[in-house]
Simulated scan of single mutants.
Amino acid sequence: MAAKKKVPQKNKIAAKKVASKAKAKSSGKGKAWTFPKNSLEESLRVARAIEDKNAGNPMRAADLGRALGFNRPADWRFQDLLKSSNQYGLTSGSGANATVELDSIGEDIVAPSSSGQRQQALVNAFRNVEEFRKVEDFYGGKRLPEDEFFENTLVRDFSIPRDRVRTFIDVFTSNLKYIKPFAGLSSESESSVPESIDGADNNSGKTIAPKAKENERIRQFLDTCFVMMPFGEWFNRYYQEIYVPAIREAGFEPVRGDELFTTGSVVEQIWEQVAKSPVLLADLTGKNANVFYELGLAHAARKPVVFTASNIEDVPFDLRHLRVIVYDIREPNWAEKLSNEVTEYLKNAKIEPEKSIPQPFRDFQNGEE
């Protein structure tokens, strides 16, 4: 039996060095993050806090952190959020002792002079991250491949470190999902990249107004208002012709359960929308079981809810002291009256949310036991 040939020790050492270098090259350890750890929607919290809490003027990191719910400006979660906001071009300034101010992209999103300006600024923020822009160009008009192949392409062709590639995919796809409705593009397919997310003519390079598909709205507002109501022919008409314009007039983007297209549990999607919406609207007509279940989630989340009903008897007795709009379709101009009242009540609920939250949830809202 022939003896095995021994591999020289120096060859083993050389092989280990090659393997170590290859592993280090595909790892992000010790390297700065070149793309945001947070989604665009999450990062907008920074720009919105500056606009809402300080009229758009620069803020000290300590004050900004408290406005966002962080007790210490050195909190790593707050610092990650600040850095992400900077990488999107929303704000300038990072670090525990920094003064953070709005940049032009951030200002155009949180305080635009038109909905078109906001739409374009959101796209600009997304493309401000070089890696996102390159991947968008590469896959424009195509479906994203399965995770394994997408990950390999990102590592090999775009130099995304292997240990950061999942974060990249999560943030990239979340951003596409968030931006598409503002550009009038279908959000049903989460696994595809549109040819252009800003309506740009790829041949001329000019930006054209986005065109929504039939029965699909172009999103205009950052804040959403989740609508809890029955489905059906007449209710669908009430939603499209009365509630949608009224909610937008109040400065919110209307969202209803049947407009959610993401995969996963329906209850989780509803809970997500409840949590995101500063104010909600519930039509209690007919005492629909699904509506009351969603209403329970809203109260558990301590969210202000404006109620409508065609019959006061459909409103539980212990909720009638809250903001309730009773409409009668037999009255002249009932639809216009309902629309105006919904707009007014939503605006008031945003200013004084506690008046639309029942006890004991109102006390929880104020931090009382």
Score class of each variant (00 low, 15 high):
1 M>G: 15
4 K>H: 12
6 K>G: 10
8 P>K: 09
9 Q>S: 07
10 K>Q: 11
11 N>T: 12
16 K>M: 08
22 A>Q: 01
23 K>L: 14
30 G>M: 12
31 K>V: 15
31 K>E: 15
34 T>G: 03
35 F>I: 10
47 A>N: 06
49 A>I: 02
55 A>V: 04
57 N>G: 03
59 M>N: 08
59 M>T: 07
62 A>D: 01
69 G>M: 09
74 A>M: 06
74 A>F: 05
75 D>V: 03
77 R>I: 02
77 R>Y: 14
77 R>T: 01
78 F>P: 03
83 K>C: 00
85 S>R: 01
86 N>L: 10
90 L>E: 02
92 S>V: 07
93 G>T: 01
95 G>H: 06
99 T>S: 07
102 L>E: 07
107 E>F: 04
118 R>H: 01
120 Q>D: 08
122 L>N: 01
123 V>T: 07
125 A>W: 08
129 V>F: 01
130 E>V: 08
131 E>W: 00
132 F>G: 07
137 D>T: 11
138 F>C: 05
144 L>P: 04
144 L>T: 09
149 F>Q: 14
151 E>L: 05
152 N>Y: 03
155 V>S: 11
161 P>H: 13
162 R>D: 13
166 R>S: 12
168 F>K: 07
181 P>K: 13
182 F>Q: 01
185 L>D: 03
188 E>L: 05
190 E>S: 09
190 E>P: 02
200 A>F: 13
200 A>H: 05
202 N>Q: 13
206 K>R: 12
208 I>E: 14
209 A>Y: 06
214 E>T: 09
215 N>V: 10
215 N>K: 14
215 N>H: 13
219 R>D: 07
219 R>E: 04
219 R>N: 03
220 Q>E: 15
220 Q>M: 05
226 F>P: 09
230 P>R: 15
231 F>P: 00
232 G>Q: 10
241 E>A: 11
241 E>Y: 10
241 E>P: 00
244 V>F: 02
247 I>L: 12
248 R>S: 04
258 D>S: 06
269 Q>T: 06
277 S>A: 15
278 P>R: 15
280 L>M: 11
281 L>W: 02
288 N>M: 14
291 V>E: 06
291 V>M: 11
299 H>Y: 11
301 A>E: 12
307 F>T: 08
310 S>Q: 14
310 S>R: 11
310 S>I: 13
311 N>R: 14
311 N>P: 02
313 E>N: 13
315 V>P: 00
315 V>K: 07
318 D>L: 04
319 L>Y: 00
323 R>P: 01
325 I>R: 06
329 I>G: 02
340 N>E: 12
341 E>W: 09
344 E>G: 00
345 Y>D: 00
352 E>G: 00
353 P>V: 07
354 E>C: 05
355 K>I: 09
356 S>F: 07
358 P>Y: 11
363 D>L: 15
